[in-house]
Each structure stands twice: as structure tokens, then as C-alpha cells.
């Protein structure tokens, strides 16, 4: 088991290093001119050159690279865990990421857990009568939900639940501006407000999460329901479930056996999906102005803020790899066949 985890960690680390290299060089190969963008299109030659110098872009690429990973004397870089400073605001990027990342992770994780919790009973209902009405309807639903533009559904939800019904708060952020945010401990508003015992912030935070989470759960439930339904049906029609029935084992015990067998393989797939959804969170954040890492990424990209772009890609890739790894290891712990 340890060897298994070690091997996976090593592969992930190598991948991250390669990723860091590729990101750095790839964006410099693309035909974009960040200096012109930052100094303004009609900047004089002097101001262009001084901007270029200020950003360190007049140095040879390999020197820039050295600064990026932190092997140049006097500068800290990736090796020290320092992402550098934003070219636009001059603020340390790590600080920005620490502020925006928890917002995204909170949204995605809550949505993931909810979508999974919904999909399990749905999958079980399908497996009871494969090909029955419930099964076919669930299948159609998962096909539909899995192919929807989430940003549009977010807008629709806003229209109905905010504009028409007035149940939801305006889609303008994570908290009502009138509510004092709880002191930052983890960055997750739900957890921080619980830690601070701040009922008002907790309630307002959840209220603001309602629509984005609903949208995300709807879209996410497509692939998750499809996957759970498939596994559940496979297990419930398997020879071992039949054999347990033939051995006179109680339905409750059989259900436990079946659940373990059906859910174990979904873990790895959930891990892949998590990374995919994390990278795509920008859409829902934009619709609800949540200010998560996705929106930070958009602003960095549109401003040609290279250090911020590099940092965002690496952070998201690292978290995706880590979540995938953790769920894959959990899967291997449940399934002895994978530990070889």
C-alpha cells in the first residue's frame, strides 16, 4: 500500500514539475505582447522600454526562468513556494490565491457531495428494475443534465428565484455587503462563520450559495448519476449478489455488499471529474460574481498577467492531482485487486 501511494505521489510530482516548465515556456511562445498591454497601446517607446525593464522582460528567457523557479540570487521563486508578484497590481500572488481559492473549493466540494448523495438512491432505484420506467427516466435525465451550459442555467435560476420569486439574494457575491464577514481562519465562509459562532454570516453565506450550488449540482448530477447508475446496475445484476440471495442472506446485508462494490470504482472517476469541474468553475463564479480563483484566472488572462496565470494553472493542476490521488488511494484501499 505504501509503495502504491509512493509511486503515485512520485508520478504526480514529476507531472507538476513538467507542468511548471511547460506553462512558463508555452505562454512566452505565444504571440502576445504583455508589455504593450500593460503600458498601453499608444505608449511611447521610452515608457514601453521602462515597463519592459520593470517586468524583467528585457532579460534573456533563461534568466527569467531562473527568477521564476527561484535559483537567481536575491529572488525567491517556485522552489520556495513563492509565485511572485502580479504585474498588474504588484501584490503577492500567493495572497490573492489564498483569498480566492477557498471560495471555489467550498462551492465545488459542497456541490460534489450533494450531487453524489442524490445520485446514490437514484442509482439504486434504477438498479432495482433495469430498463424500467424509473431507470429510463433517470437515464434520460443524466444524459440531459450532463450536456447543459451551466452558466445559462445559473442565469435562468437567477431570473426565476431572484427576479421573479425573490427567494434568492442578488447574484453579487459571496455575502451581503451589509453583513460583516467572519474573521478569516480557513477562508471557507461556512466553516469560518461556524468557528466564530456567527449565525448571521453563516445563514447569509448559505443563502448566497443556494443558487450557485443548485446550478452546479444540477449539471454535475448528469455524469455522476450516469456513473453510479451504471455501477449499481452492474452490481445488482452480478452473479455474487444473486449468489448471496441464493444463500439466504438478508437483503440489508446484500445491500451493504452491493454498495461497497458499486461505489468503490466511482471514487476514481469522481477524482477525475473533480479536477475537470475545478478548472471550469470560472463560469459559475462569473455568473454569481463569487470572486473565486476562476474569476481571478479570467482577470489574470485578460490582463496578460503572466505570473498570475502560471500560478493559477499550477495551483489548480496540483489540487486536481491531489484530489485524484486521494480518491484513487481510497479506491485501492477498498479494492484489494488494485494494490498489486
Amino acid at each position: 500500500m505504501l509503495a502504491f501511494v509512493g509511486r503515485r505521489l512520485l508520478t504526480a510530482a514529476i507531472q507538476l514539475v513538467a507542468l511548471a516548465l511547460i506553462v512558463f515556456f508555452a505562454i512566452r511562445l505565444l504571440p502576445a505582447d504583455p508589455v504593450a498591454r500593460l503600458a498601453g497601446q499608444d505608449a511611447s517607446r521610452e515608457s514601453y522600454l521602462s515597463s519592459q525593464h520593470a517586468l524583467g522582460l528585457d532579460r534573456p528567457v533563461m534568466v527569467q526562468f531562473g527568477a521564476y523557479i527561484g535559483v537567481l540570487p536575491g529572488s525567491s521563486g517556485l522552489l520556495e513556494g513563492d509565485f511572485g508578484r502580479s504585474w498588474v497590481t504588484g501584490d503577492p500572488i500567493s495572497q490573492e490565491i489564498r483569498r480566492t481559492l477557498p471560495i471555489t473549493l467550498e462551492l465545488i466540494t459542497i456541490s460534489f457531495v450533494l450531487a453524489f448523495v442524490i445520485s446514490v438512491p437514484l442509482g439504486m432505484i434504477c438498479a432495482l428494475r433495469p430498463g424500467g420506467i424509473a431507470d429510463r427516466m433517470t437515464f434520460g435525465y443524466s444524459l440531459f443534465a450532463g450536456s447543459q451550459p451551466e452558466f445559462w442555467w445559473g442565469l435562468l435560476f437567477i431570473f426565476f428565484f431572484f427576479s421573479v420569486l425573490g427567494w434568492a439574494p442578488p447574484p453579487l457575491g459571496r455575502l451581503n455587503p451589509m453583513v460583516t464577514p467572519p474573521p478569516v481562519v480557513t477562508g471557507f465562509i461556512t466553516i469560518d462563520s461556524l468557528l466564530a459562532g456567527d449565525g448571521e454570516a453563516l445563514w447569509d453565506g448559505l443563502h448566497h450559495l443556494m443558487l450557485p450550488v443548485a446550478t452546479k449540482v444540477f449539471v454535475l448530477s448528469g455524469p455522476i448519476v450516469k456513473m453510479v447508475r451504471q455501477n449499481m446496475t452492474r452490481v445488482m445484476t452480478s452473479d455474487y449478489v444473486l449468489y448471496q440471495q441464493a444463500s439466504g442472506i438478508s437483503p440489508g446485508r446484500i445491500a451493504l455488499t452491493a454498495l461497497k462494490n458499486a461505489l468503490a470504482p466511482t471514487l476514481t472517476l469522481l477524482g477525475i471529474l473533480y479536477g475537470y469541474i475545478l478548472g471550469g468553475a470560472v463560469l459559475i463564479e462569473t455568473v454569481f460574481s463569487l470572486g473565486g480563483i476562476g474569476q481571478y484566472a479570467v482577470s489574470a488572462v485578460l490582463a496578460f498577467d503572466y505570473p498570475a496565470i502560471q500560478a493559477v494553472v499550477l495551483v489548480i493542476a496540483a489540487i486536481s492531482l491531489f484530489v485524484y490521488l486521494a480518491l484513487d488511494v481510497a479506491h485501492a484501499m477498498l479494492d484489494p485487486r488494485l494494490q498489486g
Partner: peptide
């Protein structure tokens, strides 16, 4: 089932839960 009438099937490995 199992107490008065027992069953043995082909594909024995497939008839055992792989995770137990």
C-alpha cells in the same frame, strides 16, 4: 435458501464479492 436447499454455480469467482 442455504438452510434446506443450497446452490453451487459455475463461474465460482464471479459468484464471490471481489471486495470481501
Amino acid at each position: 435458501r442455504g438452510r434446506q436447499i443450497g446452490l453451487i454455480v459455475q463461474n465460482p469467482r464471479g459468484s464471490l464479492s471481489p471486495l470481501h
